[in-house]
């Protein structure tokens, strides 16, 4: 009974000091996260007409969105993209992390930095670079086509998405590799010795020690990657001006569509509705991945 009373007093006293400590974070969180999100949700209920001004339209924007073939076109494109690109990228990252961690390579520090380097290059710069490299007229592919007598076009409507996938994989594999590598470094080295004494070979060590150790970071990288690819924007936006007939439309990805709705069509309310729906969709998927991933970790 008496301990309950002291607890109550503590609870009563704590908030005042505690609030001060969390204030910097809370203010930032409120202004850069909570308020913008609430504001988006709010304006998604309005339609601002060029003639007639702003009017409350309820859920009209959402109803319109769910009947908008252009939205589905973009949304399906990024989902398919994610389903293919993310596994390729993460498997490469794991392979690279294992290779570096194997301690059998020379110059691993150099190698690590080089693989990570593309992540440090802004997407705008790297897209321009890849655009020139993959361009069929004067780029690397152009020269290869000329030499081989082929006419492969990396920026035809059917292949543009693959080229973007190559760019994204190049840009983010190093980043994911570092996360995996850090997880591997956290494994106590004694475990490997113990395994070796028990007669495990390198393959067994990878299979039974290293891969399970990566599970937690795998969940994190999958979630990051899904969020990242769902927000695909820079690459198609720049490529559209760089190459012609690439098939990139103003609604090529949901983010590009939201941007064009808001800034060329001045349909901010509709764009906000799209952003909210995509955010909810992303959160739902990330949540499923997390629950599934964590359950597996716990079951082990």
């Amino acid at each position: 009974m008496s301990s309950a009373t002291t607890n109550a007093i503590r609870v009563h006293k704590r908030p005042k000091v505690g609030l001060l400590f969390i204030a910097p974070f809370a203010v930032l969180f409120l202004f850069v996260l909570v308020i913008p999100i609430c504001y988006s949700a709010y304006i998604s209920l309005f339609q601002n007409k060029l003639i007639g001004g702003n009017a409350f339209v309820g859920l009209d924007n959402y109803i319109k969105l769910f009947n908008d073939p252009q939205f589905y076109d973009g949304a399906i494109r990024v989902v398919v993209f994610t389903a293919i690109q993310v596994p390729i990228m993460l498997l490469s990252a794991i392979a690279l992390a294992l290779a570096i961690d194997s301690l059998r390579l020379h110059g691993t520090k150099f190698f690590r930095v080089v693989v990570f380097l593309p992540y440090a290059i802004p997407a705008i710069v790297s897209t321009l670079m890849w655009g020139f490299m993959l361009g069929i007229r004067y780029g690397l592919i152009g020269s290869l086509n000329e030499a081989a007598g082929t006419s492969f076009d990396p920026f035809a409507p059917e292949t543009t998405m693959i080229s973007i996938g190559v760019m994204a994989t190049w840009g983010f594999t190093g980043y994911n590799m570092l996360i995996f590598y850090a997880a591997l470094r956290a494994v106590p080295r004694e475990l490997y010795e113990a395994a070796a004494i028990d007669g495990a070979n390198e393959f067994h060590i990878v299979r039974y020690i290293k891969l399970p150790a990566l599970r937690g970071s795998l969940v994190v990288t999958i979630i990051f990657s899904i969020i990242g690819t769902f927000q695909l924007f820079n690459e198609p936006n720049i490529l559209a001006t760089l190459v012609s007939n690439s098939g990139i439309t103003s609604y090529y990805t949901p983010n590009l569509y939201a941007y064009n709705l808001a800034f060329t069509g001045s349909q901010q309310g509709y764009a906000a509705a799209l952003a909210i729906v995509m955010a909810l969709f992303t959160i739902a998927i990330a949540y499923v991945v997390q629950i599934k991933g964590m359950k597996n970790v716990l079951n082990k």
Partner: peptide, 13 residues
């Protein structure tokens, strides 16, 4: 030529 878009590098070349 429908393969060259205005203001691009290809166009300049």
């Amino acid at each position: 030529n429908t393969k060259v878009t205005g203001w691009s590098d290809d166009w300049n070349r």
